[in-house]
Each structure stands twice: as C-alpha cells, then as structure tokens.
Amino acid sequence: MAVSTAPQELDQEAAALGRSEDAAATKRAKRGKLVRYLAMPGFLLLLNIATFLWLSGQDLDSIERRTLTADNLIGKAQEHVWLTLLSTTFVLLLAIPFGILATRPRYRRFAPGIIGLGNAGQAIPSFGMLALLFYLFRVTPWLPSTGTLPVVVALVGYSFLPILRNTMVGLDQVDRSVLEAGRGMGMSERRVLRRIELPLAVPVILAGIRTALVLNVGTATLAFLFGGGGLGDVVYNGLSLRRIPITIVGAVLVATLALLVDYIASLIEEKLTPKGL
C-alpha cells in the first residue's frame, strides 16, 4: 500500500521538520530576548563611560570641579528619582481609581468626554503648564512657592491624564463577551472588575504608567523652577554659568535616568502582563 503509507511518511517528515524548526526558533527567540534585555543597560553604560572619559580629558575650572563631584551629582540624581517616584505614586493612587469609576455603567456617558480631555491635555507643553502652576503657587498665599510640594503637584497634574486615559481605554477594550460570561455565571460586578477587567486591562494601564514615569523623569528636570532640585539644577547651572561640561554631564545623566526608568518599566510591564494574553 505505497499509496496510503506515503502520506503518513510525509506527515512524519513534516512533523520532524517542524520540531527541529521549532527548536531552532525557540533558540533564536531566547537569544533575541537576551540581546533585548542587555542592549539598553549596555548602551547606557557605554554612554556614561564615554562621557566620563571625555570629561577626564577636559581642563576643568574650579566651578566645574566643584559642581561635577560624585557627591553632588548622586545627590541631585537621588532628588530627581525621589521627585519622580513620589509624583508617580500619587498619580497612580488618583488616576487609576478615577479611571475605574469613569468606566462604570453609571458614569460611562462621561467617558468619551474625559478621554477627549485626556488627549487634549497631552498636547499642552509641559513647560507652559509648569510655568502656569509656578505662577499659581506664587499668587496663592497659603501655598508654598518652592520645594517639593509644588513640583509634585505639577508632575501629578501633568501625568494624571495619560494614566487616566490608559486606565479607561484598557478597561474599555476588554471583550464584552468575557464580561458577560463572568456576570452570567454569577460573578458580582466587583468580582468581575477585580478578577477579569483589571487583569485584562493591566497591559494598557502599565503602558500608561510607563509613559507617565518617563514623562515625570523628563518633566522633573524643570523642578529647578520651584527650587525643587533634581538633575535640572545641574543642567541649569551649566547653562546659566556657560559651562558646557556641566550642561553635558547634566543632560547625559537625565537622559540615562529617563532611559533606565523606561527600561525598568518595560521589564515590569513584561512581568506583570498576565500569561495567556
């Protein structure tokens, strides 16, 4: 029965071929993953080493030497990270619950308006928004016009919208039939939210948080406007004192921080995205 066995043999061959291809693909994927994991830290390391080497070759004056100490730079970087984390934490606590509320049936009719506002809010330049807030804090007698608080308020205000919008979009894109199945089996509204909607919205919400984090790192550079510290001080010092090495070091550090935060956020995003999606 050559006729009937031939296709079977072919099948087996194809299957064997498929298996070895699979194995090769897995190997490739693993290597690709490793490259992806190491690329960004490697790049940042090289960037900073290059800056350091370049700096060592420069003839620094006393102002530059005073500013560009490890202590000073680390301190500024810490302030920067602190401002970013503080504002991001606050904005998460505010924007995610608000986003959940705005997608509940009772308030759903407001959702398109809020999302529209969110999109528009993104178009406002951060510098303009901060300047406005700066003015607001100045003219309001009971508000401190300098320090951490105004910076955090400004950062929260600015990154509120992307997180809000992503929370709403994330919840909205969950397949209605999945929710109906959950409700139809007797899950309460709350349980459906906790067990189905939020986990399924996690990738989109996380993308929003990542955007907000990067925005906050960038915008926190403007904290010097309020005397809030951070790496913006270094850049601003460099600019106002016309010391190019200081400006460059400040800029490189801010860029490094922003890219590092984005990188870490991407790892967290990957980790927290539910399997099966």
């Binding site: 929710l179 109906e180 189905i196």
Partner: peptide, 12 residues
Amino acid sequence: YVIQQIGLFPHV
C-alpha cells in the same frame, strides 16, 4: 450559561 463568543477568560 454558554454564549456564542464563548467568553473564556483569556488570562487564566
């Protein structure tokens, strides 16, 4: 309850 779109929870 069984629906046409099945509605399995994709994340579990």
